[in-house]
Design a protein around this nucleic acid. Structure first.
Lengths: 202, 202
DNA sequence: TGAATAACAGATATTGAAATCTGTCAGTCA
DNA sequence: TGACTGACAGATTTCAATATCTGTTATTCA
């Protein structure tokens, strides 16, 4: 009883996830195996299965961790202060910047996580729903502040998410190096913000 | 000199393209080879290389043909009559419907053409440019008619194309079965049209 | 003469046997 | 006692030999 002890540390889900990220970084998604993870932990692969019922669930957990960490700044923006119009623009630009810098800084790792995300559809969908909730929150504030005119908040939040897919959906990542990207982003944001505006200056 | 004669017919680029489409339909992109195409034509594969310098150029030509054929209706809408606002909405909905029905009617063939398009990047880009030109044409009409207020026609045309990517870009095809797709499409179109509107009814 | 071919080199794809992996579980040991 | 192990069956992956394909060219033949 009492203190189970390994080489050095207790085997916890967190420690497994940490190591799994390392293994993914070193081997890539295609090559990384549960046996690799166990080896890196000086543990039999059966022990990993004590904490995660399957390789898929382990992958899902890694994906969840990564998405949460990468998009934490967005949460702050959505909940922070500021007029809704500015906040919306900052939130969207931050979202694009996060994705764009991830792919620019470490394309290999980005490819790994992209593949991971494609297998963890449910996790990604839950994450998207949280992002759209944040957009809906900003829209609600905007309506309260009299800055936006919106019929259906949830539908519009989703519409903004959908309409900006090209700039945040990883399927389009290979276009993010386009030198005209900034101009294209500006044009779409301009059009969307005009569409939300409660007092068009015409 | 005179009349080169095969089994039945002269070997022309068009006949080769026709047959290549058949072969792609039967074998899929991964399995279809130049030798297969030549076999189907009762011809040696060397003869195919007389008309197309490489397999890539043959693929490009097939992609070009397919894109032109599939999107012919859009050209008619863009050049046809009608108020610009309606025309724009019809054009966009037609674009979505074309893609959506292609994937619904023959998912296998759609997958083949999707893979084809990914290898024929230059062809696809040229095609996208033509579509954006059509959008710019509609926007110009709309401005002339006093229906739209647009600063930069070309940038806005591209913005509309970008903002609707989720509904026409094949990378998102697997989401086109979403039962809420129609509502999502409506929400984005509504937002975009509001953003273009010269006389907002507020 | 010039459209078509057959033979060829190098690159790519297929195949099936061997190795590895996933997920399970009875048993170890602290 | 319960976290961990090691051995196992079936599924998946690797690997290297083998076959096929791409693109070229010297040759055929109508």
């Amino acid at each position: 009883m009492g203190t189970p002890m390994n080489d050095t540390l207790v085997l916890t889900p967190d420690r497994i996830l940490e190591t799994t990220e390392d293994v993914l970084r070193r081997f890539g998604l295609a090559k990384a195996t549960v046996v690799d993870v166990a080896r890196a932990l000086n543990v039999s692969h059966g022990s990993v299965y004590r904490h995660f019922p399957s390789k898929a669930s382990l992958r899902d957990a890694v994906a969840r961790r990564w998405l949460d960490r990468a998009n934490a700044p967005l949460q702050s923006i959505a909940e922070g202060p500021g007029p809704a119009r500015d906040k919306l623009e900052r939130w969207l630009r931050a979202q694009f910047a996060i994705k764009c810098s991830k792919v620019a800084d470490d394309p290999e790792m980005f490819a790994t996580y992209l593949a991971l995300a494609q297998e963890a559809r449910a996790v990604v969908n839950a994450h998207k729903d949280r992002l759209i909730d944040q957009l809906a929150h900003i829209l609600t504030e905007g309506v309260e502040q009299g800055a936006f005119q919106v019929d259906d908040i949830d539908a519009t939040a989703r519409a903004i998410f959908d309409a900006t897919s090209r700039f945040h959906h990883p399927a389009h990542a290979d276009e993010w190096r386009d030198p005209t990207l900034a101009a294209r982003t500006d044009a779409v944001l301009d059009l969307l913000l005009k569409g939300l505006d409660a007092r068009p200056a015409r």
